[in-house]
Design a protein around this nucleic acid. Sequence first.
DNA 1: GAGTGGTCTAGACCACAGA
DNA 2: CTGTGGTCTAGACCACTCT
Lengths: 253, 253
Amino acid sequence: MAEPNQSLPVDLFIDLDRSGPVPLYFQISSRIEQAIHDGTLPPGSRLENEVALGNRLGLSRPTIRRAIQELVDKGLLVRRRGIGTQVVHGKVSRGVELTSLYEDLERSGQKPDTRVLSTEIGEADERMAEELGVEVGSPVLHIKRLRSAGGVPIAILDNVLPADFTDIDLGDLSKHGLYQLLRARGVTMRVAKQRIGARDATAHEAGLLDIPKGSAVLTMSRTAFDNSGRAVEWGQHCYRPDLYSFEMTLVER
Amino acid sequence: MAEPNQSLPVDLFIDLDRSGPVPLYFQISSRIEQAIHDGTLPPGSRLENEVALGNRLGLSRPTIRRAIQELVDKGLLVRRRGIGTQVVHGKVSRGVELTSLYEDLERSGQKPDTRVLSTEIGEADERMAEELGVEVGSPVLHIKRLRSAGGVPIAILDNVLPADFTDIDLGDLSKHGLYQLLRARGVTMRVAKQRIGARDATAHEAGLLDIPKGSAVLTMSRTAFDNSGRAVEWGQHCYRPDLYSFEMTLVER
DNA sequence: GAGTGGTCTAGACCACAGA
DNA sequence: CTGTGGTCTAGACCACTCT
């Protein structure tokens, strides 16, 4: 009863698109992920071994391996040498991908809303210079926003951007996310380093977030880098802890 | 000045061990990581292209690719098609691997210390059953601990383990970490799903953590799975926010 | 011994960026 | 056009787990 299922065929492996832009390994991993989410591959069940899967699909083993590895990295599958590949137990099957309650609100029809508190072009102080990797005193764009959903305040967003972005269209900030605007300018985020913590809210923060003075806020500070490795944004955010949390999956490497 | 360095040779690629148990791609990625941390490869500098690197080291391209990919996943390198591979800017080079201030304390000589508050073998309630993937009413081991460093309380740890571990040696809990004990029993953690949040401390928690009643605590709840995909542990922890935070690196996939 | 994943090779063609 | 990373093939040998 420890290993309830033998290897499953998973018939849904027809119609691979070899000419389109979608990589084969991605097509495979998507199909397997779908099979896990809809219960075709229940928790604990074993996958076919890599070689057999490759033969049956007419693909080479490295391609199959990469497809499976994608799902191992996502925390959906577990592999053991000499044993095989199994689906992870737990309510993994659905809903665990969400990163925050904010997205829950967004999905449930609550429209996110942003109020720009202030924008200012100033000079980088020591801390900003360090975080962004620029010279002290170089021009930076400092943005403070209040993010709400369904009329309820959720987070205070404090961001600093290097000189290149001082000409950003500030009017768009109330309509689009900062990352959305940067992407529209051709910037693609690739790496972010962040720290999550907590502290008591200041009186000002408590007022903005509509919570009792001195109660807890969840904090996150993050520096993001684009695809050339250059710092693009440094943000210090604080969230209403009853409306926001961070969810993640860790995989042993 | 945007691209300050051309590709660097990085001479330190001799003495590869082809017979030992350490994979070649790991030997390569370790050497590159070392070169980044000691400044041989400064932020923004470009690596040699994959083919040239492979030829010079006498390795195939897939092996080189895998080595580089390891560091891309760690957030140390960034790749662009048609451009090349570059070292990420920022103080990335060192010190960002630490996961928490707790480890800072540990490194600075403050010995971590654990006090077992209570251990109890009980029946799984609905929540525990759901998190651990066991039947409601099945036996579970419930452990509560207080973790300190240098005599200062840092975290309250509340853990629930399934039936298999009810015979764990509870005396060891004050001397070793829970994960350490599980590993000694042959259990290897592979996947963990966790949620980080914040809230006001209860009076009881405030007393244990030696903080003012009602001030903020950082919370983390986690379910861990072993290499067969089975849930092994469910924990609900709360931390003193002035002594603990979570640091992580995100990479766009 | 049989079956599995882990590693590695030596090529190939393609998509994209820049001069 | 050249140079780069992204994908893919068709094999090979090894280490590990279980029977």
